[in-house]
Nucleic acid binder design. Structure first.
Lengths: 339, 339
DNA sequence: AATATGAACGCAAACGCTTGCGCAACAAGG
DNA sequence: CCTTGTTGCGCAAGCGTTTGCGTTCATATT
């Protein structure tokens, strides 16, 4: 039905091999013949069959991208920017949405990307077994989330520094009762919540503030979870005057909880988030900004480089800058009556 | 390097054809042989090469999904749900992020999905030429956005009814000066903004309100655009007391503009959006909710059905329900001094 | 003038599957 | 006992490319 390489060859009066070489810019074809073949191909609307060429060459020109939730802003944004880099380089993106445990399990046992992709970018944290499965593919691997893993190129941020800037900001405003909404319930291989928690504890210790476990709550990295967590914190015998949320989505949930309690940020409670979500600006959320799209693009670029130079040492870990963005949800604690 | 079908055949003492039939559940294989082959295949970690099988069979078990911006909530959500349906049915998803004119143009001229996908789901509105290019692929086509197009299965909502419910709500609250933030600057083939505008005008006419062109502004479907548009409306000689935004993102931009002007919703201006964005709840935005994820899932299901029953008449247009969600950004207009 | 050199191209063998067809073997029907 | 089916399997021909090798022919080298 659609034109094949042989149709082009016949129409151009050459062999299929010449067509193949001509169209892919390989040497061994004179300029006149090359131009003529290009013209014929264009006229016939010929596009090489990816299946056939990857079968023959072993190269698929396809990248597998593994994502827990495409719909969430962070992942969507990373995916968006990574895809642009890949497609600009002539690679297609095969998307796997592995949010639910079943699909995830099926993916890693069947490994449908085998012989189908030239590299894998994973936005979810594989456990030991899953990492091994991915390594068994024998292709370059990268990720934009979580700690260092052998065999993976990881591009991330300095979670510790980011957290420190956020919590120090609260301390400097004069807060002493500083709560945290974390996202610890995920898989254990996920080092980010742990690093952020440690940094939080260190800043408190540095400031001579005693840590109160009642001021920590789990927000599951979702808006609803953040709301629940904030509600929990407000119910403490001595609620916090400021809260650091490990993600903007949880921070927004916290803001909603405050509204439901007829409280306001920053008048009653200061809130600072993490990420600089697209809508953080809209709700006036103070937050520590990380370059999300850039991380996706950078990870994509590093993968492409590994494909171009298979022998070069793969980069292990690159860090991108963060910065605190001051908006309207943080302020000094309101002077209270009797402590 | 990795096991091929012949390795399995040899290890199981049968021919490659039998392995192929056995593993894909085709008839012509006895149960014992089938089980034994399955065991051998599992032990060897065999997965059929997609390239080879699609080359041989013509079926790719891959769906192409075309998206303007993966990072935007609406598209990310549709993509998320559609992918789940596809992968559950054993199909992979090839993602094309076609936001910029250049990538879009390149996609439609080179048509890299040719011979690579069994169907296409497009979340962007193809123009006439692009539609023709897609139809030339000879595979089922579907979309979740925009008006009816020949050859495409479209699942959408009743834009007119949704808009009417939003604007009537404002009218019923007593508003007479009702502005609209639209998103008309997109491609012309995109009927949604037009339908919504018509519905808006009709409701006004119905209520005996004269239309004031100064109360319309373009928000480009983005937060920033919404902010600009609202700023524009506020600068009118007689600013609106209520605004209908054609998307929640623009509505959120409008809210931000209000904050910047030291105005509040709904005290100074009522705002109603469209979509029921994930965070509409967080900012308390009144909006007309559409089932975004369901639309993606439904479109995916309809495509799969067409693949299963190639002879059946493809469904033309299915509509999903909408409903007005009342939150905290709408209220009766504040009684003013001298009109 | 004879030979070596390289560029331009064709031949044919893969790549790893699917599938129509043929051929046994065995069961059932007359 | 001979047909007629049916079931289970192997053979081999594709599917549309890529690529190592061989051939041809023009040009450069002695």
């Amino acid at each position: 039905m659609t034109a094949s390489i042989n149709d082009v060859a016949r129409a151009a009066g050459v062999s299929a091999s010449t067509v193949s070489r001509a169209l892919r810019g390989r040497p061994g074809v004179s300029d006149e013949v090359r131009d003529q073949i290009a013209a014929v191909a264009a006229q016939l609307g010929y596009t090489a069959s990816r299946s056939a060429s990857s079968l023959a060459s072993g190269r698929t020109y396809t990248i597998g991208v593994l994502v827990p939730y495409v719909g969430r802003w962070f992942f969507g944004t990373v995916l968006d920017s990574a895809e642009k880099v890949f497609s600009a380089a002539g690679y297609d993106v095969l998307l796997y949405n592995l949010g639910s445990p079943e699909t995830r399990k099926r993916f890693f046992t069947k490994l449908p990307v085998r012989k189908r992709v030239d590299a894998v970018l994973t936005l979810l944290i594989p456990d030991e077994e899953e990492s091994a499965a991915l390594r068994s593919l024998g292709v370059p691997l990268a990720t934009t989330v979580g700690g260092i893993r052998p065999g993976f190129t990881v591009v991330g941020i300095d979670d510790r520094a980011g957290t420190e800037s956020a919590v120090r900001h609260l301390v400097n405003l004069g807060h002493r009762r500083i709560g945290m909404i974390s996202g610890a319930s995920g898989p254990l291989h996920w080092t980010t919540p742990i690093e952020r928690r440690n940094a939080y504890l260190d800043v408190l210790a540095d400031a001579g503030i005693e840590h109160d476990p009642a001021l920590e709550a789990d927000g599951d990295y979702t808006v609803e979870g953040g709301e629940r967590a904030m509600t929990e914190l407000l119910a403490a015998s001595r609620p916090p005057t400021a809260v650091f949320a490990q993600s903007d989505e949880m921070a927004m949930g916290a803001l909603r909880a405050l509204r439901r309690h007829r409280l306001k940020a920053p008048d009653d409670v200061s809130v600072v988030g993490f990420d600089d979500h697209e809508l953080a600006d809209v709700v006036g959320l103070t937050t520590v900004a990380q370059p999300v799209a850039e991380q996706g693009a950078e990870a994509a670029r590093l993968l492409l480089r590994q494909l171009d130079e298979p022998d070069a040492e793969p980069p292990g870990h690159v860090q991108m800058p963060i910065r605190l963005v001051l908006r309207e949800t943080t302020a000094p604690p309101r002077p209270r009556g009797p402590q």
